[in-house]
């Protein structure tokens, strides 16, 4: 229960970091952010990177700012930063509501928002949220920086569009209109555990009808994503138990549930129904 041997690098600038990463990535060199996912899997020797590039000393990556109507979250911003709203309005409230479900407070003090996105655990709350908000992911390497849309980013269980030599430097989330209604619900066995299913939803009410509804499901499939069928069931309808139940049922039909020793597909589908409906109810 200790990691296999590795070499440790502690760059002081992003430039230095991407340069080192470019060199060591082919030999399974990896970025070390909060270490709350990477270090445990190294201790179990499920991962044995030969090099770690620790980005915690790079001050520029601790940035958390609003720019052009977007919240920009730097790679060193910890989960705990969101426990109080970081911006006024629905986005800050949604982030604060969701963060309480991520692990336990010591882990939140260390783990990073961007690390969660890069790691892309199927049950990461932040991944589901980024999917629901159509966030943008900024990836930087010696080749330069590029912006990836959330819809193109998540590719499977812990698989993303990030290249092995890229540092995920920033995630950008659109600020939500003040009248946006947001809801979140997740189901897990114990408080702080990774969820078996979760839903992040938001919509606006225009003349009593749901406008631009978004429903993202996490935890149930290989990666979180928006479920168009559920969104279509909501769009232009007035919120009602029947409409919510319909959207939840469609979400459940649409998912391809992950199965494991403790969770069968049928049960996971039932959970998708429950979390979707409850997230929608919470949004009202």
């Amino acid at each position: 229960m200790k990691p296999a041997p590795f070499q440790y690098h502690a760059p002081r600038s992003l430039q230095e970091a991407v340069a080192i990463l470019a060199q060591v990535a082919p030999a399974d060199g990896r970025v070390l952010a909060g270490g709350q996912s990477l270090v445990p899997i190294m201790a179990f020797r499920l991962a044995r990177p030969s090099h770690l590039v620790d980005i915690n000393g790079i001050e520029a990556l601790a940035r958390l700012a609003v720019e052009n109507g977007k919240l920009c979250i730097g790679a060193c911003v910890r989960h705990a930063a969101f426990e109080r709203p970081v911006v006024e309005g629905p986005l800050g409230r949604l982030l604060a509501m969701v963060v309480r479900h991520i692990a336990h407070s010591p882990i939140r003090a260390r783990g990073t928002f961007c690390g969660s996105i890069a790691h892309a655990d199927p049950a990461s709350e932040w991944c589901a949220l980024v999917a629901a908000l159509d966030g943008e992911i900024v990836a930087t390497s010696v080749r330069g920086a590029r912006v990836i849309a959330a819809g193109q980013f998540f590719a499977g269980i812990m698989a993303t569009a990030l290249a092995e030599d890229e540092v995920l430097t920033e995630v950008r989330l659109p600020l939500l209109a003040p009248d946006t209604r947001c809801g979140f619900y997740e189901f897990n066995r114990r408080a702080g555990d990774f969820a078996l299913a979760m839903a992040v939803v938001h919509f606006r009410l225009v003349e009593g009808r749901m406008f631009k509804p978004r429903v993202a499901i996490g935890g149930a499939e290989t990666h979180p994503r928006r479920v168009a069928a559920a969104e279509a069931a909501l769009a232009a309808n007035a919120p009602s138990p029947r409409v919510f139940a319909d959207a939840a049922a469609r979400a459940a039909r649409d998912v391809e549930p992950l199965e494991d020793a403790q969770t069968n597909a049928q049960y996971r589908r039932e959970l998708v129904v429950a979390v979707t409906r409850r997230a929608l109810e919470a949004a009202l």
Partner: peptide, 12 residues
């Protein structure tokens, strides 16, 4: 591992 074997915590 304790990610699969689930003892209740103080919160349960």
């Amino acid at each position: 591992t304790l990610a699969d074997y689930l003892p209740p915590t103080a919160r349960e």
